[in-house]
Design a protein around this nucleic acid. Structure first.
Lengths: 309, 309
DNA sequence: CGGGATGCTTCGGCTGTGGTTAAGCTTGGC
DNA sequence: GCCAAGCTTAACCACAGCCGAAGCATCCCG
């Protein structure tokens, strides 16, 4: 492999125009520079210099190499600057979470985590599951909190491990005045004639409504696309249509809507995602514990025995 | 400065997951790897590894550095591949020449040059002067043959030196049947009412027609834009208009046109352009001599005493 | 619960890389 | 024709960097 220190010497010679001047700049003796250049030429296997007793000039190969050297040395300088910037900043656990998790379980998990690991900073970014997975893969994140639906699985990737945190039922959100709102449990085929609201195609939830309805035997009439669950509930309350929603998205229920469980309805699973083999990365085990503890301690939004209000 | 060899070691550790495995891959002993890493951390000034007695794991700074290392090592490999490609190919003198020079003096200069320097290959590219200058600057070319007009000077650039090869008069090309074709010399203001042909704006000749006419006191009526002098002559022969042309562009005169000198008309100067301080680059002095010799030996297209046919 | 295996570090010693100084050679200027 | 400038070569020396051995903490297993 070419020696980068020697490339630096060559670059200096190219810049200054002579071995003596380069030596001066590098605080070497001309002899040392000459020797290093000789070795570099040996490594390169191509003449890099045209020598005359009182001067040297680079060959085309030499100039070519200098161009590469410029890039490499620049990159090296950047690496150093990067390190200096990182220096002093405390280690950070970088978490990506989907919207509903970020709004529900994550805040409490953060306080639990801080009690156990006060020295580790946490940074949370709200992101769609597919985005989080990609960023975990390339080390922009250390932990992803992601979900998958029945009918809409996450892509398998050997570089990523998933650990289930929680399974929740999907519910149907309908206007409080809707006839089916009187039932404790609704059945999907009864909703075949409704107008539906689904997520936009910026979200990985997007295909879920269509696939679930198809699995129930009908094609949904989709007329609205919204990602925000509050906006969606307002739309439902106004009678515009009905929609699916996960438990975590219904923490603050609009009084104009009812959220009903679905008989044999689809589920949504929330997972922690981290790079394969790095389950015990700095702070990660503690954060996973904090998340699980939070979920365990959480009182159910819709207690099973009491039915739905 | 960070030592690239050590970066390579760090990268290997990141890839293999342990010092022992990295040592195996690098054909080192684990001891050596450990020592190199310790020194790298010292150079970096930031901890790169979290050590436990039976394993190591990279810190965020460590991973960051590995990313830089990947780029640097990749670049280094490219440099090597580049050299191997260059290896064996003979040195080439790369020349850029404007169209008329490329078509007139260059071919003969090449044969003269080959007689003096048979071992040096020459590669000629036809290019607009401004393009040639830029390519000389970035070492894509070693010599540019460029021109400048009165009224349209070349941009000054301390990194480029110019050496005048030849000064030629601009002529007026008009239909052989044109009344002014009877005169030995024409005067620009007499052409104020003509229709003009000029170069396209892809060429640096483009502003010349307009500026020269303005300097002569009138605004030219421009209706055609052509870069090729043969096409231009055909257009003139058909009576479409009149045009300026340099001597070098008139080596094969269309019988339907006349080319007349201009009283107190503008000049065009042809220059050799090379990087400042590299006047004596491999083969360049010989090529310059060949060009000058060619120009000197060239019999004038329009002998001064004989008038114009 | 104890012994062996694993994997990292530290220490001491040797080798070779890479620096120095000094001398030699060629060329260009005065 | 001599001197100065600039590159190379040779001889020398220091230290970087590798190895091997020893030490230590952990993990695995009987």
């Amino acid at each position: 492999m070419l020696d980068v220190r020697r490339l630096r010497v060559l670059r200096e010679v190219a810049l200054r125009g002579s071995i003596a001047a380069a030596a001066e700049a590098l605080r070497f003796t001309p002899s040392a520079v000459s020797q290093q250049l000789a070795k570099l030429e040996l490594e390169a296997g191509v003449p890099l210099l045209e020598r005359s007793p009182r001067s040297v000039r680079l060959t085309q190969a030499g100039w070519r190499l200098v161009e590469h050297a410029e890039v490499i040395l620049e990159q090296l300088a950047q690496a150093e600057a990067d390190l200096r910037e990182l220096d002093g900043s405390p280690p950070v656990l970088r978490v990506g979470a989907n919207t509903t998790a970020a709004a529900s379980i994550v805040p409490e998990a953060l306080t639990r985590f801080a009690a156990v690991c006060p020295e580790i900073e946490v940074m949370v970014t709200e992101a769609d599951p597919l985005v989080s997975l990609a960023r975990v893969r390339v080390r922009e994140l250390d932990l992803g909190i992601v979900f998958e639906y029945d009918h809409v699985p996450l892509p398998a990737d050997p570089r990523i491990e998933l650990e289930e945190l929680l399974e929740e039922s999907m519910r149907i959100v309908l206007p409080a005045s809707h006839p089916l709102a009187k039932q404790r449990v609704v059945s999907l085929p009864d909703l075949a004639e409704e107008t539906w609201i689904r997520s936009t195609n910026r979200s990985s939830c997007n295909p879920f409504t269509e696939r679930s309805c198809r699995a129930a035997g009908f094609e949904p009439r989709i007329r609205f696309e919204f990602d925000d669950y509050t906006a969606m509930q307002n739309l439902v309350a106004s009678g515009a249509g009905v929609a699916f929603a996960p438990d975590l998205g219904l923490s603050r229920l609009n009084p104009g809507v009812a959220a009903r469980p679905i008989a044999f309805g689809p589920k949504r699973r929330v997972h922690a995602a981290y790079r394969t083999g790095e389950r015990d990365a700095r702070g990660l085990p503690e954060m996973l514990d904090a998340l699980k503890e939070t979920i365990r301690a959480r009182e159910p939004l819709f207690p099973a025995r009491a039915g739905v209000s």
